[in-house]
Simulated assay, not measured.
Amino acid sequence: MRSRFDVWYVPDPTRAALRAEFGLLGELAAEPCQFEVFYETPGPGELRGCIRKQLQWHHELERRAGGALPFPRLCLLSSGRPATVLDAFGFAPVPGRPGLYRTAPGWRVDLVVIAELPRTRETLLLRLLGARAVLRDAIREFAALPDDAWERSIALPWLVRLLFEIPHEASACAALDTEEEELVKEVQQWFEQLKQSLRDEVRKEALQEGLKQGQLRTLARQLEKKLGRSLDDAERAVLAERFDRLGPDRLDDVLLELPAGALAAWLADPAAR
């Protein structure tokens, strides 16, 4: 039976500067790494299973390469603190990195306790993999990010998937404890707000596009009156391009200031402004 791990990650060397912006996650992703995510805290058996997969994968990588390769790092992401695992396998806290624990260097195993991570923006993506109150608070922080925040493009697919994985039936919701029920409501409320904001954005873009098309039609009619003829398709395309590039105020100035001959030349000149 073939073992599978959650994520096998190989960094792109050209994106080192981008990874540096990811804080702890960027540090963990600085080299090839096997990531294993645990919503419930893992026990010794789960850790041994991950190490078994780590060893098997190293063997497979060397077989494919036909020679020795560096031993890959294993990183466990645990929602809570697995005290038995930390004690039994000799994990030690990494100085200056709350929530990060590491075994002896030869094992190349890291363990992140998500519940112990500081509540900063650089840990937000990791805390979205947490549970209960940690996840709820992370979702609130995510929802408060600016619309152009880079975290949105990364985390949004995961959060949408989360919405479809949480229970919606009354019987299933009844089995949840208070904290889990609050989380379900939080995710559902956030998703409804997201859908509404997307609808509003679509409507806004449609309105802006409608206004633009109306302005272009008016400009085209004014140009045709001044030229004494209809615009062809190529001239209409030029008008639309210059509307976007130069703006409607500049086009108004051109209409008012240029005589018919100069206006025709302006339309025909690719470098005209």
Rank of each mutant, 00 (worst) to 15 (best):
G247C: 12
E201P: 11
L125A: 15
I166Q: 05
S78A: 10
A237M: 13
L25A: 13
V254D: 02
R132V: 08
A65Y: 01
L207P: 00
L255D: 06
F5M: 03
W107S: 04
G96F: 08
F142N: 04
R273K: 09
A265N: 14
Q193P: 00
H59T: 15
L135G: 08
D244R: 15
L111Q: 02
G45A: 11
A220I: 12
S78H: 01
R19G: 09
E60I: 05
A262Y: 08
C173E: 14
E192Y: 12
F5E: 04
P118E: 07
R250W: 07
A65G: 11
L231S: 06
L256D: 14
L163V: 10
R19E: 07
G261L: 06
E169Y: 09
D6E: 15
D147K: 10
C33A: 08
D137K: 10
F5Q: 05
A271M: 01
L231V: 14
A264T: 09
L111C: 04
F142G: 03
E151P: 00
M1W: 03
T103G: 09
E201R: 13
L251Q: 08
T14D: 06
L55N: 14
W57V: 01
D147V: 13
P42M: 06
L223N: 06
I114K: 00
E192K: 11
C33K: 02
A83I: 01
R127K: 12
D148A: 14
P98V: 06
P70C: 00
R64L: 08
V134F: 11
V113Y: 04
L255Q: 06
D147E: 14
V187S: 03
R229F: 11
L263Q: 12
F191I: 00
S197P: 01
E192P: 00
L176T: 01
G45M: 04
L47G: 00
E116N: 05
G67R: 15
L124K: 02
Q213S: 07
E46W: 11
R217L: 14
E169P: 06
A17W: 00
H59F: 15
E27F: 03
L216D: 05
R119N: 01
P42Y: 01
P146N: 04
F22G: 02
V160P: 04
G130E: 09
Q188F: 05
F142H: 09
C50G: 09
A272G: 07
R63H: 09
Q188E: 07
A144Q: 06
W150N: 00
A29L: 14
E62M: 05
L258R: 01
A88P: 02
Y39P: 02
D148I: 07
G261C: 04
F142V: 05
P167G: 02
